[in-house]
Amino acid sequence: MKKSVILGTLTVAGLAAGAAGAATLDDVKARGKLNCGVVTGLVGFGAPDANGEWQGFDVGVCRAIAAAVLGDPTAVEFIPTTAKTRFTALASGEIDVLARNTTWTFSRDVDLKFDFVGVNYYDGQGYMVPKALGVSSAKELDGATVCIQTGTTTELNLADYFRKNNMSYQPVPIETNAEAQQQYLAGACDVYTTDASGLAATRAAFENPGDHVVLPEIISKEPLGPLVRHGDNDWGDVVRWTFYALVAAEEYGITSANIEELSAGTDNPEINRILGTEDNLGAMLGLDAGWAKNAIAAGGNYGELFEKNIGENTPIGLSRGLNAQWTDGGLMYAPPFR
């Protein structure tokens, strides 16, 4: 076995010389696979199921990008990243796109040199407490012990919130969501705080979800979205517009069910442009004319992805809220395709 590693190293070193310096889009096409960084396991957003297939909302975005670029939604290599490793993995080129419920912040965008291509989930940090505690507002949490997942913006928000309200608390930092659940259920902490969507997902996995309540206060803005490396604008455009194609598809009523029918040609020029039957938008991105069609066919439009993975009929049971289309009073708003 040891020899093979030596050989592997040699081959890799040999390959490296040729691969250096190419643009991400060309890399992905040459490789035939998209390397997509995902969470190590958060039900609803990205987690392997019992058969080892990755499932989830963020995973759906990865599959859509792969379908748009390579025409095959399964041509994705899912690379699990922790809060600690995600940014280096992206910066060093190990992954092409990071779709790992990552909050868009100033310093990540500017200082760490990444580009957030959009927001696929508008979230905010909330608190979950056992009902038996009789707490109805986060303002009553003075002196509580709070479980947090380390390495996220939640730690900072938590510190800010308690300082602002002049309350004290004891943080219990925990590596993974599974361990946080264990601690919380055992009563090692009174409160569990993370993004409200994560709280809902966690609560859904409990034996008696009814015994726990999510407090009404949302203490932060957490726009979660896919991100790419700063500087490779062509690739950024591909990811951005693939995502917006999903959003626009919902707006115009393109679903995975009727997409074949619609791609035969419709009276709506916007739909035609998205599906590539009018004006070749794909060519401008360096993709096929049917790029958006493939992306939408991969897992459905934005609304379908939402409903299938985290919507009200799933165990996670999130309502659309801010993530509804702008026509329904939400924030999902795709720029025009023209």
Partner: peptide, 15 residues
């Protein structure tokens, strides 16, 4: 490892 190699590293990205 938890402060400097953990939270600080994550928050600042200065790996």
């Amino acid at each position: 490892t938890g402060t400097l190699g953990g939270i600080t590293l994550n928050q600042t990205g200065r790996a």
